[in-house]
Design a protein around this nucleic acid. Structure first.
Length: 1142
RNA sequence: GGGCGCAUAGCUCAGUUGGUUAGAGCGCAGCCCUGAUAAGGCUGAGGUCCCAAGUUCGAGUCUUGGUGCGCCCA
């Protein structure tokens, strides 16, 4: 017996039970064990941060990460899934600061770095339970208990090892770089962080006069007109830049009687700004301007003897898009400005080399070196005073407001960022740009435009990775500096550190641990403890080596996970090395689009630098044999972003989405998964749509469930039990066993051992058809999934389940209702449907794992439990092999034929609907006209099916189609286009004008159509034209895809009577249900009516009514003690009495 | 300002190398079926495939230029 179905049980409730089953029986690990020794399929989990609540967008990531590993493991690969957590970084610090109600670095220091770090470590796990719950509830099989954690000592040390390797290869360097600086927070922001904070603001835009001087330093009465939007950087001016490719000229301002130098192209723009004309005096030689001296507006740093500063430099980046074509350069506050300084420094080595000028302190206020009225004030607040000052000294030419996008701190939204020079650590990624590009070219990106588009473009504009962060909670940068000489060393592990000569300071950690024994040991390698560890300098006697203060960008942490997840530190041998090498590179990763510059880049960069092919690296420094490209991942699905229900970014405060937990409780994880997998390719950005999730249930889950439910109801009634069917007949002695040692997966080779299981070719067409469709669907699903196309795979599955439900089961119903429980046809039907359900169960297992498991348990496991048949069945569907589709079962012709039957039925119904002839009313005949008669003979043999579907007595395939249809001849554009070219429209016109029937006859007789177009002889073969048919008006008909169905609409008295009987049967069936009959109950029926014709008809069809309604007796009088129901059959009123027969 | 992507029915989305009737689901309307019943089926209405120009015998699809939106970068 199959388990009976509890109709009140919900999908979510079933899922919870399945989840429990998986946990209890440890199915995930069993699925790995079953693939011991199998080829690996390597998956990397991009570590989420458990520092915030998961939302529906995370569900997509976690679902897709589950889908492919589940699929691959069923396909015979071994796919380990190690979970991971991203735990470091500014977001964690910000979270803790919020909690503590503090903001700046000063406040953190005042609070104490040590307790602050403890808080960070605790805060990391704040939403851990939610994340675990989401992960398990959505059915993401991943090893949470063996998760890698980026703050763990082994992880940090692995990162250290890689940094040491890069340092020793000269790829990790300290530089001076202009960074986006959050002055209030005292830290630089990564480009990603900066990008989040752009806002449109109005800033002052000023045009300032910089007087030109001769070589002796004497003003010549002409000024450069210089444009800037950051007046506060003017005191730190060091150069002005022009573009020698542009033209410059002297212009005379009549009003002020001044001569100014401006780019010629910009004169009109400036004239319109100041609303008065300027007189062009003469063109200037741009090249001769370069190197000329000027007087800067502030003399804070001015040194008339400097050979290179306060001179005009040439720069390509100067454009005529805005301003004056002459750009103020303050190298301290702009990246391109800084590059100019570096260039000038290179040109002027030695004593006279220009030094970086900077009148601003790290906290964003002017230093003592700035103008007196600015000192100690926030720079942006000084803009007005600086402008006033310039005006009073007659240096201001023009001033206005300028609207542009400017970055603010992404967490402290009121704080504008400034560009500011900081000492910072960099990874020399630019040196590996070409290798990264070569590597990228070999990665299979989905969608593929990421490769040369977003990601490729990003790589091409690669700049060195700014690695260091002047923060607290992160992987400490493992560089120790000699306090005496400034020489540096990288340290590769904690062990290595404390083994250094005269290492000291470890006791700081030990004391803290003694005081609070609960402190996780991993903290010993973090700030502030690690900062206190010093050792003897090998470079200067008596000097100590001290660690630099910075931590590193947490993107480096996550990008290092391919090796750091195993704690790999270049081990020459052993388990760790084996783990790493066997799990590198990844076959598959997937994250959302926002990771392009995040995890996708950090992984690729680190991997290419560490393990890429590079002849210049000594082999001892290249820790693993260079893997073949691509690495560290071969296939990457870049997921679209999920927006909220209103199309806006998902936001808690807007409440434009539902908590994942609520989705699971209402609709279930499978409904959500199916919605995510089956509705669009995964890289489409979608709106969260509750209705679409809900729709997965009737559209797919419930439809399949109903088929399953139908099957078990009748299998139980008929006592069709595969475990009994498969029971080996002892007397027979033919004790068959599966060859494999694995438990049975209930595929064809197992099922076919049952004596009642007939070979497929011997079964009815319907059975062969659905099994053909099933196997074709399997093959396509495999093909699509191997190409990482879950959407295409799901479409196949949907199509198949529709065929199964809306054609196979519907068409087979009376086979299941047949009396003889053991008839060959009935057993065939059961075996066919059973096999379809089992295979579908496996087919859907990666997509909707909960439903699949439940079906498997009920359809397979439950039957064989406690059986002594010698059969053992796979404990879980997820331990089965994925069905690949058996080619020999696929019958292409049969599929086409059945499609035609379905099309004809559909057209017939359409015609009926147009003529308002309900299906219950029998009609005498339909005529079918086919444009393509390939399958006509077959269809004629199967006319009964069509007759039944359309409730007609006969189906005829008209031999005089001209009666019903017009032929239209259309050129086959695809074939004729290249051949005819410009003649095409004319040929089309000629064909349309001629009689279709004649042309058809032409083709039949001569095999071709001869035309004369523009005096040219043209012969069209049968293939080069397409005959379309169109129903002639005047008939009740419908046509589509070369098929016309014509309905005979005359209703004879016989047909009418039969229609009544159909109506009556339906009413009786309704009433059966009304009084709560079991499916097998026999009934007694009483019909009371005035209408003699109806009574006659009932007499006439008595046996049929009895059979279909399981009635033992039908009488024309009331049944005693039964409440009748009143209804109408045709025009006749009847009283219907019905009761269960004793 | 630059890069990338998107724009198709009321809504959510498909649409293969360009080929002549542009599809699905939901929603809406009408009908049917119900011995699968939190069901199921059929039919209909609903489209300037964002706009413009171009390439082509032929453009939802290719090119260019706009417009709008999103993401990334400045």
């Amino acid at each position: 017996m199959f388990p009976t179905i509890d109709k009140n049980e919900t999908f979510p409730a079933r899922e919870l039970a399945v989840g429990e089953f998986w946990r209890e029986h440890d199915i995930y690990h069993k699925s790995l064990a079953a693939r011991e020794g199998a080829p690996p399929f390597v998956f990397y989990e991009g570590p989420p941060t458990a520092n915030g609540m998961p939302h529906p967008g995370h569900c997509l990531t976690r679902a897709i990460k589950d889908l492919f590993p589940r699929y691959k493991i069923m396909r015979g690969y071994r796919c380990e899934r190690k979970a991971g957590w991203d735990t470091h970084g500014l977001p964690v610090e910000v979270e803790v600061c919020k909690e503590l109600g503090i903001h700046s670095k000063e406040e953190i220091e005042a609070y104490g770095v040590e307790p602050f770090i403890h808080k960070c470590q605790q805060s990391v796990w704040r939403y851990m339970q939610e994340w675990r719950r989401l992960t398990e509830r959505i059915g993401f099989w991943v090893d949470l208990d063996q998760a890698y954690v980026t703050y763990h000592q082994s992880y940090v040390e692995s990162v250290w090892w890689s940094l040491k390797t890069l340092f020793d290869r000269g790829l990790l360097y300290r530089g001076h770089k202009i960074v986006w600086w959050w002055a209030q927070g005292g830290t630089a922001l990564s480009s990603g962080e900066v990008g989040q904070g752009y806002r449109e603001v109005a800033d002052p835009s000023v045009y300032v006069k910089f007087p030109l001087m001769d070589d002796q330093g004497v003003d010549v009465g002409v000024s450069f007109l210089v444009w800037t939007t950051t007046p506060w950087t003017l005191p730190s001016n060091q150069f002005i830049a022009i573009n020698p490719d542009l033209h410059y000229c002297n212009v005379f301002d009549e009003e002020t009687k001044e001569t100014l130098i401006i780019a010629s192209d910009l004169v009109p723009a400036i004239e319109s700004k100041i609303k008065r004309p300027l007189k062009i005096v003469n063109e200037l030689d741009s090249d001769r301007l370069v190197g000329s001296r000027y007087r800067p507006p502030f003399d804070c740093y001015y040194d008339a003897d400097s050979p290179s500063e306060w001179r005009v430099v040439a720069a390509e980046f100067v454009t005529t898009d805005s301003g004056s074509g002459i750009v103020h350069q303050a190298p301290a506050f702009g990246e391109v400005d800084y590059d100019v300084l570096v260039r000038e420094q290179t040109k002027n080595p030695g004593k006279s080399t220009p030094k970086l000028i900077n009148a601003v302190a790290p906290n964003g206020t002017f230093t003592e070196e700035g103008p007196d009225y600015c000192r100690g004030r926030w720079v942006k607040d000084c803009d007005k005073d600086i402008i006033r000052d310039l005006k009073s000294r007659g240096l201001l030419f023009h001033q206005e407001q300028y609207l542009h996008d400017y970055p603010f701190c992404w967490r402290a939204e009121e704080d504008p960022l400034i560009q500011y020079p900081r000492e910072s650590w960099f990874i020399r990624t630019t040196e590996y740009k070409d290798q990264m590009l070569a590597n990228n070219a070999k990665i299979n990106w989905l969608p593929d435009h990421i490769k040369d588009g977003r990601f490729g473009k990003f790589l091409e504009s690669n700049v060195d990775w700014a690695l260091s962060r002047e923060r607290y909670w992160g992987t400490p940068l493992p560089i120790w500096v000699c306090e005496e000489t400034g020489k540096m060393e990288a340290v590769g592990s904690y062990e290595e550190l404390i083994a250094k000569p005269q290492a000291a300071g470890i006791e700081v950690w030990e004391e803290a641990k003694a005081q609070s024994p609960d402190l996780p040991d991993d903290l010993r390698i973090h700030k502030p403890y690690i900062d206190s560890v010093t050792y003897e300098s090998p470079y200067a006697k008596g000097a100590r080596m001290r660690r630099v203060t910075e931590v590193i960008d947490c993107w480096y942490d996550s990008g290092a996970m391919p090796f750091a997840q195993w704690g790999y530190r270049g081990q020459e041998s052993g388990a760790v090395k084996e783990r790493f090498e066997s799990q590198f590179p990844a076959d598959f990763i997937s994250e959302a689009l926002d990771q392009t510059r995040g995890w996708f880049y950090s992984q690729l960069a680190i991997s290419t630098l560490m393990f890429g092919k590079d002849e210049s690296i000594e082999s001892s420094l290249s820790p693993v044999p260079c893997p073949p490209y691509p690495h560290p991942f071969k296939n990457c699905i870049v997921l679209g972003l999920m927006l909220g229900e209103d199309g806006q970014k998902m936001s808690k405060s807007k409440r434009n989405y539902r908590e994942p937990n609520e989705i699971f409780d209402r609709y279930g994880a499978d409904a959500l998964r199916w919605y995510l997998f089956a509705n669009q390719p995964p890289w489409t950005s979608i709106r969260y749509s509750e209705d679409a999730i809900k729709d997965s249930i009737p559209e797919f889950l419930l439809r399949l469930w109903n088929v399953y439910s139908f099957f078990t109801i009748y299998a139980n009634i008929d006592e069709f039990d595969p475990s009994v069917e498969l029971k080996v007949d002892e007397a027979d002695g033919s004790h068959k066993k599966e060859n494999s040692e694995r438990p049975a997966q209930m595929s064809t080779d197992t099922l076919s051992q049952a004596p009642s299981y007939r070979p497929i070719p011997e079964r009815s067409e319907l059975d062969r058809w659905i099994l053909s469709d099933l196997n074709a669907a399997c093959a396509t699903v495999v093909e699509r999934m191997d190409a990482y196309d879950n959407f295409g795979a799901c479409q196949q599955i949907t199509r198949f389940v529709d065929s199964l439900s809306n054609w196979y089961v519907r068409r087979s119903r009376d086979r299941f209702w047949a009396k003889d429980k053991r008839s060959t046809d009935k057993l065939d039907a059961y075996w066919t449907l059973y096999e379809c359900l089992l295979t579908t169960t496996k087919l859907i297992a990666p997509f909707v794992p909960f439903l699949a498991e439940r079906l498997w348990q009920d359809l397979a496991v439950a039957l064989f439990q406690g059986e002594t048949s010698g059969q053992s069945v796979a404990e879980s569907v997820h331990l089965c092999d994925f069905p690949e589709g058996e080619g020999s079962v696929v019958d292409q012709a049969l599929s086409e034929q059945m499609d035609l039957v379905r099309l004809i039925s559909s057209l017939g119904r359409q015609a009926r609907s147009a003529a308002e002839l309900k299906v219950r009313q029998p009609l005498s005949k339909v005529e079918v006209i086919l444009a393509d008669t390939t399958h006509q003979a077959w269809l004629e043999e199967h006319a009964a099916v069509i007759a039944e579907e359309l409730n007609v007595k006969t189906v005829e395939f008209s031999d005089e189609p001209e009666k019903y249809v017009d032929h239209e001849v259309v050129p086959n554009f695809k074939l004729l286009g290249p051949k005819l070219g410009k003649l095409m429209p004319k040929v089309k016109g000629i064909l349309a004008k001629q009689s279709g029937s004649e042309l058809l006859a032409n083709v039949r007789d001569n095999g071709q159509i001869d035309l004369v177009v523009d005096g040219q002889q043209i012969a069209l073969t049968a293939e080069e034209v397409e005959f379309r048919i169109q129903a002639k008006p005047g008939w009740t008909s419908a046509n589509d895809k070369g098929v016309v169905v014509v309905l005979a609409t005359e209703i004879t008295p016989e047909l009418l009577a039969e229609g009544w009987i159909k109506d009556l049967i339906r009413v009786v069936q309704d009433q059966r249900k009304e009084i709560g009959c079991e499916f097998t109950d026999r009934i007694k029926v009483g019909v009371v009516t005035e209408c003699t014709e109806l009574r006659t008809a009932i007499q006439q069809f008595l046996e049929r009514i009895k059979q279909e309604t399981l009635a033992v007796e039908i009488v024309f009088e009331p049944l005693v003690g039964v409440t009748p129901m009143s209804t109408k059959i045709g025009d006749a009123s009847i009283e219907l009495y019905l009761r269960v027969s004793s």
